[in-house]
Design a protein around this nucleic acid. Structure first.
Length: 727
DNA sequence: CATACATGAATTTTT
DNA sequence: TTCATGTATG
């Protein structure tokens, strides 16, 4: 390790300087063609996106666009919301009004709501969540095995992400399982069409199909968009690539204007369909593509960055990129051994307490983060710490030890508010109001609360509806229903139907927050939902907590109906919406409320969930062979597939390291529990790689070594491109 | 139809 | 060790 002759003393600003660096400027001002920005960790990629949007709004060749002509696409609602805030801060609320800042999926919804008719979709189609899909698949596959349904769901989702139809999937199936899954997919698709419902993958796939098929619609969207910016480009899947291509044109029809921002070294979602091919293809599909690398890191100390670079160096690269920083070395990366999970957690807690006691005074460039006035200056706060691990279950021991030490914490990626049964119940009702043909929603709503309609009745209703090829709701009102069901059952069903009908009418009429709240509360009282919660829970306390969630949810919906003039950074939320309108977008806006509270607590998170975040002090735990990298042995995978997995695991480690600003501790277990037994643990190969001296090629000067590396990588890139070109 | 008990399986996650 | 699913019983 090359030590710098000086150490940063005292507070240093770890945030990017007010002006953009040359590479960032180049990315912002390249307007004459498509642009790929390879943004290393902590290199200020969001700044580039926001500044580029600001630039596009100003006059000039390739710019001077209206806000509505600019689309910035992200993967999560959270990222979209943050982006919106940042842009608002940069150009002001007025100028940013009309900008399309949304997730891929929300953009898909927009395309489909507007033009879905072109492919036979009603504008009020419903969006199924993961549970609905699983249920539907179980149904379509005639299986009662939920695990099987999940496996189908997984496979089918991956197929859809690749743009495969059931027929194509069946044709390329290599075993019986896949053939069966393909046939289940076929039936599943039929049902979706019958219900006028789409799943999350369809929100990408259907717009792609629509734009491919309908030239007029395609022309309309291409003309309406002047520039598309894509964040986290390395996470795109094949269909998302296609969508982008269709939106910006293929480069021959008109000049494709887009800016893709991503980091191939942070591609950690291959397992859910993201493909790095999208990066390799880009220069081939768009010969005029300008590639710009952002290599200056504004986040971490030199020691942390070197560790990150050493780990990632073992991966083949498409584009060469090496992070550097102007910060001092800082503290060395600390590698710790734990005798057991408990011991590791205890040591982590001690470290955290020790760091906090030192208050950053002993940390070279451990710049104190600006406190929010509470901690009194120099102190390190709980929110400055994060403990990162590979798998969710690893959080448990740490939770125990943190609680024992009275350290406040939050677990990211725990059970989501919207996964809770009571919230899903209400969502099912709302979805049913929007689209009465949404059978999964119907089934959930009709049985919550219990209203004397059981399995028997629903099975009969189901087969009746199947016979007449109608939705369950439509079947309710069929004259001949009495022939299939008892009078009592028909009575209860009609009662339910009237209830939905009535509520739908009122939800359409009710506009504004106050009225919306009254409507929703009145309805909950009518259906006896609070009682239902108490019946279903033996602890009154738990039932009350659930009811509290329900009330929060009601407030949340009401807020979205508008009415109150909330003044926020100069904007007035004056648009008043009906309850029904809010319900329409429920599936998409739902995770907006997921924005975590900004309490001063330590973070426990998986490495995946930590991407895009940063903390002054990071502890990477359970860095063992078998955990990180995750078990690579006894897989029925090809050598190539295994190598790819290892590369992704390495990127995961890289992501983990680069989350840290001032200090990083990496710990591994000498013995770890696996199931019931305890087995010997070995440190991850990544720890070895991280500690490896840089002089792997003795006799070469650093410059020569770098050049050799570059040459090798360039050769690899050329080969990678050639391979892609063959396909 | 709902509850209680036993048995088995255990990455990563967003929309 | 926990969680979730399946079966048996009231």
């Amino acid at each position: 390790m090359i030590a710098l002759p000086f150490r940063c003393l005292g507070p240093v600003s770890l945030s990017p300087p007010p002006s953009l660096n040359p590479a960032q400027l180049q990315a912002v001002h390249h307007l004459s063609g498509p642009c790929l920005v390879l943004a290393g960790a902590g290199s200020g990629k969001t700044r580039v996106i926001t500044h580029k949007i600001a630039r596009l709004l100003q006059p000039g060749p390739g710019a001077g666009l209206e806000a509505r002509q600019i689309a910035a696409i992200t993967f999560t609602n959270k990222a979209a919301a943050e982006m919106r805030e940042r842009i608002k801060g940069l150009v002001g609320a007025k100028a940013s009004k009309g900008l399309i800042i949304s997730t891929f999926h929300a953009l898909g919804v927009r395309l489909l709501r507007e033009d879905g008719a072109a492919i036979g979709l009603k504008p009020q189609f419903s969006i199924l969540d993961s549970d609905d899909v699983a249920g539907l698949l179980r149904d379509a596959g005639g299986s009662s095995d939920a695990a099987q349904a999940r496996r189908w769901q997984w496979t089918i989702s991956l197929w859809k992400n690749q743009g495969l139809t059931p027929e194509q999937a069946e044709a390329q199936a290599t075993n019986d399982d896949e053939r069966i899954a393909a046939r289940v997919m076929q039936r599943y698709q039929e049902r979706l069409a019958a219900y006028q419902a789409v799943d999350f993958d369809d929100l990408i796939g259907l717009p792609v199909a629509m734009l491919q098929r309908d030239e007029a619609v395609r022309a309309k969207w291409q003309a309406s968009l002047g520039h598309v910016l894509v964040d986290e480009y390395q996470d795109t899947n094949a269909q998302q690539y296609e969508l982008l291509r269709l939106l910006v044109g293929d480069g021959s029809e008109r000049t494709a204007m887009f800016t893709a921002v991503g980091d191939d070294d942070q591609s950690i979602y291959g397992w859910r369909g993201a493909t790095i091919d999208n990066l390799k293809r880009l220069p081939l599909d768009y010969p005029k593509l300008q590639v710009i690398a952002l290599e200056q890191n504004y986040r971490s100390t030199g020691n942390i960055l070197r560790a990150a670079n050493k780990v990632i160096a073992a991966n083949p690269k498409i584009f060469e990129k090496k992070l550097w920083s102007e910060h001092g070395d800082g503290e060395p990366v600390c590698v710790v051994e734990g005798d057991s999970e408990e011991h590791e957690a205890e040591r982590a807690v001690s470290r955290i307490q020790a760091l906090r006691a030192q208050g950053g005074a002993l940390l070279g460039s451990g710049a104190p983060v600006p406190t929010d006035g509470s901690g009194g200056g120099q102190g390190i706060e709980w929110k400055d710490f994060a403990i990162l691990y590979r798998a969710n279950h690893q959080s448990r021991v740490f939770e125990q030890k943190l609680r024992a030490a009275q350290i406040p914490y939050k677990v990211s990626g725990g059970q989501s508010y919207f996964d809770r049964a009571e919230i899903k119940d209400l969502c099912a009702w709302l979805r049913l109001l929007v689209n009465q043909d949404d059978d999964p929603a119907f089934l959930r709503a009709v049985t919550t609360p219990k209203r004397g309609i059981g399995h028997q009745t629903l099975a009969s209703l189901g087969s009746f509806a199947g016979q007449w090829k109608t939705s369950l709701y439509e079947a309710l009102f069929a004259e001949s229903l009495g022939t299939a069901l008892s009078a009592k059952a028909v009575g209860s069903l009609h009662e339910f139907g009237r209830c939905v009908n009535d509520l739908e009418y009122r939800a359409r009429q009710t506009v504004g927050g106050e009225d919306a709240k009254a409507l929703l509360l009145g309805w909950l009282k009518d259906i006896g939902y609070e009682q239902h919660l108490h019946d279903g829970e033996d602890s009154a306390k738990l039932a009350a907590a659930r009811w509290g969630n329900v009330l929060d949810f009601v407030d949340w919906i009401a807020k979205r109906c508008g009415g109150e003039t909330t003044q926020e950074a100069g904007t007035f939320e004056t648009e008043r919406k009906s309850v029904l309108e809010v319900a329409q977008s429920i599936a998409v806006i739902i995770s907006l409320a997921e924005r975590g509270d900004e309490r001063n607590v330590l973070t426990l998170s998986t490495l995946h969930a930590a991407k895009g975040l940063e903390w002054p002090h990071v502890l990477l735990v359970g860095v063992n062979e078998g955990l990180l990298p995750f078990k690579l042995e006894d897989e029925s995978l090809s050598v190539e597939a295994l190598a790819q997995r290892l590369e992704e695991e390495r990127r995961l480690m890289y992501v983990g390291i680069t989350r840290a600003r001032s200090t990083l501790a990496v710990s591994w277990l000498k013995r770890r529990k696996r199931g019931r037994e305890t087995v010997a643990g070995a440190p991850s190969r990544f720890i070895t790689e991280m500690k490896l001296e840089e002089e792997r090629a003795p006799g070469l000067s650093p410059r020569e070594r770098l050049k050799a590396q570059r040459d090798e990588l360039a050769a690899r890139a050329a080969q990678a491109l050639a391979t892609t070109a063959e396909k």
